[in-house]
């Protein structure tokens, strides 16, 4: 599996993502935002961070980077695209995913472990999880409050495009377990085609026991398996 990790000025989870891909025996390369050429890659990942300092709005400037045109093409052709945290924000700004990530309801940066429930285990990103599984994954963001208009929310729910939801340890999507005020406790969604996933939690930080959780591995192994002919 050849994975492009897109690096924008201000990306800061690019290296973590790169190592996470390697940990599941994927082949990772950094692609600088000004570069072109996603040909030959099997998957594209947008890391977390503060692209362009989050100036204007998180992701608003990064989505205009030259490489994003290619990311759009790559996604349009059905290639798997994963955006984590700032990557999710960029995908929303670019229109590859619906909705927007607003400032957390606390108006504070939130950094801690959260529990998310796997809502769909039949996506290419989650096939190695069981549906309903509760994962422990860190979050670290100021703008993770997912919002969309009612019609969009209804469609996301009806079409089963909510992939991860904030829950408590027992798997219940309570208000207390919602770290940022996201509507319907949404932590991650996919596009219509199911090939573009955006999520606020950081699975790349939950890959090894020493980090407190290995629950993020399933995401990367799922993508790898989807790309490796059986």
């Amino acid at each position: 599996m050849k994975v492009a990790v897109i690096t924008f000025p201000g990306s800061n989870c690019d290296y973590d993502l790169y190592k996470a891909i390697q940990m599941v025996d994927g082949e990772a390369s950094f692609v600088w935002h000004r570069d072109r050429g996603l040909r030959g890659y099997d998957a594209v990942m947008l890391p977390g961070g503060f692209s362009y300092g989050d100036y204007l709005r998180p992701g608003a400037i990064a989505r205009m980077s030259p490489v994003m045109e290619e990311v759009m093409d790559f996604a349009a052709k059905g290639g798997p695209v994963l955006g984590i945290c700032n990557g999710f924000q960029i995908l929303c700004e670019a229109g590859l995913l619906p909705g927007a990530l607003m400032p957390n309801r606390s108006l504070k940066f939130q950094s801690k472990d959260v529990f998310v429930r796997v809502e769909r285990a039949d996506t290419l990103f989650t096939a190695d999880y069981d549906a309903g599984a509760v994962l422990r994954i860190p979050i670290a963001h100021h703008d993770g409050n997912f919002e969309a208009d009612q019609e969009t929310l209804r469609r996301l729910e009806d079409d089963g495009r909510v992939v991860f939801r904030y829950v408590d340890r027992s798997g219940e999507p309570t208000d207390e377990s919602n770290p940022n005020g996201s509507w319907h406790n949404i932590a991650g969604i996919v596009n219509d085609g199911g090939n573009v996933l955006g999520m606020m939690p950081h699975p790349e930080r939950a890959m090894e026991p020493i980090l407190g959780s290995t629950d993020g591995r399933g995401l990367f192994t799922s993508i790898l398996r989807s790309l490796t002919p059986a």
């Binding site: 973590d16 939130q110 950094s111 670290a140 930080r205 890959m207 980090l211």
Partner: peptide, 26 residues
């Protein structure tokens, strides 16, 4: 410390709230 990113770089073995912070060397 919930307002501080404590886990970026994916190497924090002990986060704030214990006696000392610990970072592993990859």
């Amino acid at each position: 410390y919930h307002q501080y990113d404590t886990t970026v770089r994916s190497s924090t073995a002990v986060r704030p709230g214990s006696d000392a912070g610990v970072v592993r060397i990859r």
